[in-house]
Design a binder for these strands. Sequence first.
DNA 1: ACCTGAACACCGTTCAAGT
DNA 2: ACCTGAACACCGTTCAAGT
Lengths: 205, 205
Amino acid sequence: MTRTALTRDAILDSAAHLVKQHGPDALTMRKLAAELGTAVTSIYWHVGNRESLLDALVERTVADLGVIRPTGRTPAQRIASVARALRRQLREHPHLVAMVHERGLTERMFLPAQQALVHEVHAAGLRGTHAAEVVRAVQFQVVGFVLVERNRERAPVQQPAEEELWDTETAEDDPGLARALAGPVDQEKLFALSVRALVEALLAR
Amino acid sequence: MTRTALTRDAILDSAAHLVKQHGPDALTMRKLAAELGTAVTSIYWHVGNRESLLDALVERTVADLGVIRPTGRTPAQRIASVARALRRQLREHPHLVAMVHERGLTERMFLPAQQALVHEVHAAGLRGTHAAEVVRAVQFQVVGFVLVERNRERAPVQQPAEEELWDTETAEDDPGLARALAGPVDQEKLFALSVRALVEALLAR
DNA sequence: ACCTGAACACCGTTCAAGT
DNA sequence: ACCTGAACACCGTTCAAGT
């Protein structure tokens, strides 16, 4: 059975698959070669070395990110919709943010979202430095939230169990709060709440 | 010249030094042995293996984190002061958050800050689920911000230069905003602004 | 109890050699 | 033009052997 000819794109596809599942560290040239059914050194002919392979992978992924279309009626709603869309994009590529940052492509990657935000902030009547601050605050908020989320999801079982930590006087004083903090985080709800609060306050000043 | 006897603490000190400068990936058992002037295998006798060495390092670092003392008059001010203190702690140990997360110690690490936040949120008159949401929103906000900051600071020169990206119609329409977004981020200011906005809106509802 | 070097399996990368 | 295996320097880890 003749295998398909080894191409740069086939290598990138395979690499993307490995990275998406277990992160960039799990991408070894030898595993990649095994998955492709080729000799390790063949990969070098097509993509240079491991680092330029990752470079190419990041560049392709960033280029393939969909555009961001705001929805909603009020500026606050439309800004929140951009935040949600950005979060969804980032969650689909769990390791992309770190890889993009390491390669100095952060600004390029966020440009579509930033432009959408600028548009909505303008629609809300803001201009100049103030508008820029709002755009950046929302961007930091979304990216930060996704990074924390990702860490939490990768994390193993918490140790000690979260309940034990709140088995204190606070638990008696405010059992509802103790229960809420001991339980798991509803990230979806927390994200919506945080974005709404931030945008609301920033547009109001 | 007789070297000091090799101890578990000396190994942890040396490891902490390497990790603090270049991150956990830069900590190789062989480099560590070289810095300690000992054979690689001696380290194994004292700390087990690389993974348990990192475990011990993380545990020691978390235990040594200072307590968090809120300052300010109003609840909003005191919550913001906790956020600042937490950010300062995390910035002093740039790789700690990720390492703590990987080891399932997140909740334990944030417990002091969380308790301080709970106290202030109570002082602001909130209770139960609502109070818990505010605590978590602030915690996510701070940790997320620090993660983004760290990525930005590690990142190399942006490519393409940020100015080029904003050499568009927007630049003519609102040159103040284009200039602000093309320039570097004042992280200190952005952090203060974001925290103030979030806390303000969360306490107001 | 503490330290050592040899040895193993893994990794990225280079290079001369094949077709 | 494309692919290969051998070889090198690095890595974490084990183990038998030293004191």
